[in-house]
Design a protein around this nucleic acid. Structure first.
Lengths: 246, 246
DNA sequence: GTGGCGATTATGTATATACATATTGAAACG
DNA sequence: CGTTTCAATATGTATATACATAATCGCCAC
C-alpha cells in the first residue's frame, strides 16, 4: 500500500477530499437516493486502496454537513431531503453601497443615553435595568437615503460606547472588532414605513420597506439590538444554499 | 500516555471536541483577540497530554468554521471578525402555518404549459427555449391567504411534471424528494403588492409584502423558479448565526 | 548591503493500530 | 414462546509514526 503519494492525479485534491466529493456527487445527482446505504468504511477503503481513517475523515465531514447519517453497526445512509437551510451573507452597508458604485455617506441623527425602559429591555432581551445607548442613524447612497438605523447598545456589556459620539463612524463598524460576539439572530420582514422612518428615508408613509432586525450576544450577555429599514427598491438580501464542500 | 480513556470528566465531550470548545470560547469571549497566535499544535498536545493528531482535528475544524486561520511555518491565528454570515432556515409553508396552530389549505389557481418565452428564460436563467410549466397557487392559514406562489418549472429538467395537475399537492413538496437539487439561490425583498397579487391575497394594491424568490439547480440544469409573496404581517424570516460547534 | 540557498519549523495528509461504544442478530435459557 | 445474553460488526476516538509542503530565518557569497 503506497499511499504516501501526493495528489492522486485528479486535480490536486487530497484523497479524503476526493472521496468526499465523489460521494456527495452521487447523492446530489440523485444516483444515491435518500435512505440508500452507502458502502461501509472498509469497503470504501478497499475501493480507494487507502486506510479506514481516510475514509472516516470524508464520511465524518459528510455527516457534519448533513448529507448522510451514520448509524453504528448499521452503516451510513443518505439523509432525507434536508430542511432547506441557506447561508445569508450580511454585509456592511458601506460595502453594499460602494458595491453599487455609489458614494456612501453616514449621518447620526440622534443619540440618547438612558436607563433602559421596558421596551428597551424587551428588544435587548435584557433581564435587569441598566444603562443603554439609543442611536438613530441614516445611511446614504449618493444623494438618496439608503437605509435607516435604529439601535440600542447595552452599556453594561459595552461601557466604552458611552464615550463615543458616533458622528464619524457608524455603530456597526465601531462594534465589530471591538466586541467579540458569539451569537446573532436576524429577523427579516416587510413593513409599511411609519411616519418617522418615512421622513428619514424621504418616502411616503406606508410605503413598503424591508426590515432587518439583529440581536447580538457576547458570552451570554446581550450586546446590541439594531433595526435597519430599507426602502423596497433599495435592497435585496441574497442567500445561497450549497450542500457541502471539501 | 494513557489517553485511551473515555470521556475525560468534562461532560461526555471527546477530547478533540473539548479542545475545540476551549479554544473557541477563548476567541468568542475576546480573551484571544483577532490576530492572536494560538499555541502551536505541539504545545497544545503537551498541554492536553494528547497526540498532535487530536489537536490537529480540533484546529482543522476551527479553521473550516472560519474562526482561525492556519499558516504553515507560522502557526494558527485568530481571524479578523468574519463577514457576517447567518444560516437561514426556509421551511415548507405547510409546516410554518401548522406551527402557528392554524389550519393549512392549499389552492391551485392556474396552470399553463407553454414554450418558454423571453421572461421565462430570464427567470430560470435558461439558455435555450423549451417547455415550461407555469403555476399560480395560494396558501391559506385558517381562512386568510397566507402566501401567493408564482412558479415556473423547467420541463426539460423535470418532464414528469407535465402529467401533474398540482391540485392535491403543492409544487414544493412535489418537487422535493423527486428532484435532487444541488444549489439554490434565494432573493428576499420588500415590494408593494401589484393588482394580481393584492387580489389573490385579499389585501390593498401597494400594501407592503415580503417576497422570497428561489431558483434551484440540479446538476447544472435549472429546475424551477418560484416567487412567494407574503403579506407584511404574515411572515418573518429568522436567520441565526452560530460560529462553531463540535 | 543584498540576493540566493539551504536548514528549520509548523502545518497537511496518510498510515497502521488499538480500544470504546452502540446496535443488531442469533443462540441459549426459562 | 418470549426474554436474556452474548458475540459480531460498524462506527467513533485516539495513538504513534511517516513523509510532504510551504514559509521563514539565517548564513554565506558577492
Amino acid at each position: 500500500m503506497s499511499m504516501i503519494e501526493t495528489a492522486d492525479a485528479e486535480g490536486g485534491l487530497s484523497l479524503h477530499q476526493r472521496i468526499l466529493s465523489d460521494i456527495s456527487e452521487k447523492i446530489l445527482s440523485g444516483a444515491w437516493a435518500p435512505g440508500h446505504r452507502i458502502p461501509f468504511e472498509h469497503e470504501l477503503s478497499a475501493q480507494y486502496n487507502c486506510s479506514r481513517m481516510t475514509v472516516n475523515k470524508a464520511l465524518s465531514q459528510l455527516a457534519k454537513a448533513g448529507l448522510i447519517e451514520r448509524r453504528r453497526r448499521s452503516g451510513s445512509f443518505v439523509r432525507q431531503p434536508q430542511s432547506q437551510a441557506a447561508v445569508l451573507e450580511i454585509h456592511d452597508i458601506r460595502v453594499e453601497v460602494e458595491a453599487l458604485g455609489l458614494l456612501y455617506r453616514y449621518e447620526r441623527v440622534a443619540r440618547h443615553k438612558r436607563r433602559s425602559d421596558a421596551e428597551d429591555r424587551a428588544l435587548l432581551e435584557l433581564g435587569a435595568a441598566g444603562p443603554v445607548l439609543a442611536l438613530e442613524c441614516r445611511h446614504f447612497a449618493g444623494k438618496r437615503p439608503f437605509a435607516h438605523e435604529q439601535r440600542l447598545i447595552n452599556l453594561t456589556a459595552v461601557p466604552e460606547a458611552s464615550d463615543e459620539e458616533f458622528l464619524a463612524i457608524a455603530p456597526s463598524p465601531w462594534l465589530i472588532g471591538r466586541v467579540p460576539w458569539s451569537e446573532a439572530e436576524h429577523r427579516i420582514r416587510a413593513v409599511g414605513a411609519d411616519k418617522q422612518v418615512a421622513a428619514a428615508l424621504d418616502i411616503a408613509a406606508g410605503a413598503p420597506c424591508l426590515v432587518v432586525e439583529r440581536r447580538t450576544w457576547s458570552a451570554e450577555h446581550p450586546v446590541t439590538y439594531v433595526r435597519f429599514t430599507y426602502p423596497a427598491d433599495s435592497h435585496t438580501l441574497v442567500a445561497r444554499f450549497r450542500p457541502s464542500q471539501g
